[in-house]
């Protein structure tokens, strides 16, 4: 299965995301921000980093890149899309996901291994996890504080669309400890922590992150 990983100017974690796809058993395909062509991929990852230097707002300029127009169209038809960190910010700016990511409440960049609880194990990207599984993956962000209108938050909670929640301490002040959410259909998932950095024991705190990448492969087969 071909999984596209988009590189924007300023993307940092595109190579790690490609590597995670390969370790999970998929075929990573590099996608370029300036190219509308999705090259026949069956899923897309928007990786972490600082696209367009985080100018204006994180993800605000990337959202209008030619590749994003194609991704927004296809996401509406069910294409699985995973946004990690800056990718999550881009998905919110694109209105594929509700809410926004703002400056961490304590103003510090937070970089640590983070305990998370997988609260929705039925999305395209989390099917490999047991419901309420606790996993450890790195978190590293300066603008990861998730906010949304109270009505929107109640809707997300009511529809089971909080995919992962911070456990063992909230690293950035996100409302209701929300670390990641999905759209109504469950094909678009965004999260601030970095599962692609937890796929090998040599370099990560665990291999818990691999589940995000195997999930989409399993979803495609079934």
């Amino acid at each position: 299965m071909k999984i596209g990983v988009v590189t924007f100017p300023g993307s940092l974690d595109d190579r790690d995301a490609q590597r995670a796809v390969r370790l999970a058993g998929g075929e990573p395909v590099a996608l370029w921000h300036g190219d509308e062509d999705l090259r026949g991929v069956e899923a897309v990852i928007l990786p972490g980093g600082f696209s367009y230097g985080d100018y204006l707002r994180c993800g605000a300029i990337a959202r209008f890149a030619p590749v994003m127009q194609s991704i927004i169209d296809r996401a509406g038809q069910g294409l699985p899309v995973l946004g990690i960190c800056n990718g999550f910010q881009i998905l919110c700016e694109s209105h594929l996901l509700p809410g926004a990511l703002t400056r961490n409440v304590h103003l510090h960049f937070r970089n640590r291994d983070q305990l998370l609880r997988v609260e929705n194990a039925s999305t395209e990207w989390t099917g490999a996890f047991e419901p309420d599984a606790e996993i450890v993956v790195p978190v590293k962000n300066g603008e990861g504080c998730f906010v949304a209108a109270p009505g929107e938050l109640d809707r997300l909670e009511g529809e089971g669309r909080v995919v992962v929640r911070y456990a063992g301490g909230n690293p950035n002040g996100s409302v209701r400890d929300i670390a990641g959410i999905c759209n109504e259909r469950g094909n678009v998932v965004g999260l601030m922590p970095h599962p692609e950095h937890a796929v090998e024991t040599l370099t990560g705190p665990s291999t818990d992150g691999l589940g995000f990448f195997t999930s989409v492969l399993t979803a495609a087969v079934s």
Partner: peptide, 14 residues
């Protein structure tokens, strides 16, 4: 400007 109900940690730091 951030909407009034959105926390502004930078303003608070200043």
């Amino acid at each position: 400007m951030l909407k009034p109900e959105i926390l502004d940690p930078q303003g608070s730091a200043i």
